[in-house]
């Protein structure tokens, strides 16, 4: 990648102080004069660069520091230390020229006016972001078409389903055609069908508008389908940055062998081939070391009468869990 990065973070740190209350009446009274504060390292020395047009998955458990990082990138949080540049701006300056070029969408917060049709919020954003009439109409038409919401943008937001609302939230956030998009759990609470619709939209938007997107999500499906690159963060520290495939290669120690047996066999007989995850005759699932998977499968085929055998990669969730577990051991 010869281009200059559009987002660059160097040694970013963001620490918070939180207060711990002791339980009970006594604890409450005690807290009147002495309070114990604890320093939480929400982001602890994180660096990365993101290039124009990338979709990057930001993965981490609750409280890992994902949202904090996004907030720093949006200029909402002042970093404790480190250097941050987004679109060539220091986000913290919160210059209107910068703000007009990015959008932050938070699945758990909404900007639409609850009691009015979404169209009213769109028009307000048009004024705030100073979008010219022609451009507004063009972008709106395009977004409405991509998300298929023509019939609902004039219905009061409170009468919309969660999925419909999220679609309108996205439109409101994208009307000014931001070059950089921060999506914080955009599919949270949505059903599987709607998650898929939104993913397809994000992909299409990225291609159509050449936008750079950072996405955080609990749903690995989102990340797997959208992002080639993933940054994994745990306890405020970056523990992985690279191709999603690399995570699989590095951390998926096992493969899954699914068997359908012809003959009745003993559970014990299978256990010597690998870690038995499930056994319900005639089906069995074994976890086997990656490197030996093919060999073990062959062994099983010769040792037993097997109707069907399948070698699969573990789910990405399981791999990430594995990754976090390996980190915990380090800590």
């Amino acid at each position: 990648m010869s281009e200059a990065p559009i987002i660059s973070i160097q040694n970013l740190k963001k620490y918070f102080k939180v207060y711990r209350k002791k339980p009970g009446l006594l604890g409450s009274i005690q807290s009147l004069w002495s309070r114990e504060y604890e320093e939480v390292k929400a982001v602890d020395d994180v660096s990365f660069e993101i290039y124009p047009g990338e979709i990057v998955g930001f993965i981490g458990q609750n409280g890992a520091g994902k949202t904090t990082t996004l907030k720093v990138l949006s200029g909402l949080l002042y970093p404790t230390s480190g250097e941050v540049s987004v679109l060539g701006f220091n986000p913290w300056d919160r210059k209107p020229d910068f703000q007009r070029q990015f959008a932050l969408v938070m699945g758990q917060k909404n900007q639409l006016w609850w009691d009015l049709p979404a169209m009213e919020s769109f028009l307000l954003n048009k004024a705030i972001y100073e979008v010219p009439d022609a451009e507004f109409d063009k972008t709106l038409d395009k977004l409405v078409e991509l998300l298929d919401v023509k019939d609902i943008i004039n219905v009061q937001v409170r009468k919309l389903s969660l999925g419909q609302r999220m679609k309108c939230e996205l439109i409101a956030a994208l009307l000014h055609s931001p070059k950089v998009l921060f999506l914080d759990e955009p599919t949270i609470g949505l059903d599987v069908v709607m998650q898929k619709v939104l993913r397809d939209f994000i992909k299409a938007y990225n291609q159509e508008f050449k936008a750079t997107i950072i996405l955080t999500s609990h749903y690995m499906g989102d990340v797997k389908e959208l992002c080639k690159r993933a940054i994994v963060i745990d306890h405020g520290q970056k523990i992985f940055d690279g191709d999603l495939q690399d995570i699989i290669d590095q951390f998926a120690r096992n493969k899954i062998l699914s068997l359908i047996m012809n003959d009745k066999i003993n559970q014990k007989q299978l256990e010597k081939y690998g870690q038995l995850k499930e056994f319900e005759y005639p089906k069995a699932t074994l976890l086997v070391p990656r490197a030996k998977a093919a060999k073990i499968a062959g062994q099983l085929l010769t040792d037993f009468s097997v109707a069907d055998v399948n070698i699969e990669e573990p789910t990405i969730d399981a791999i990430i869990r594995e990754l976090f577990l390996s980190q915990k051991k380090v800590h």
């Binding site: 209350k21 009970g24 009446l25 409450s28 009274i29 009147l32």
Partner: peptide
């Protein structure tokens, strides 16, 4: 009563 007293204490400000 005690529970709400504690709660009140939390919101003493």
């Amino acid at each position: 009563i005690q529970l709400w007293f504690i709660k009140a204490l939390e919101y003493r400000a």
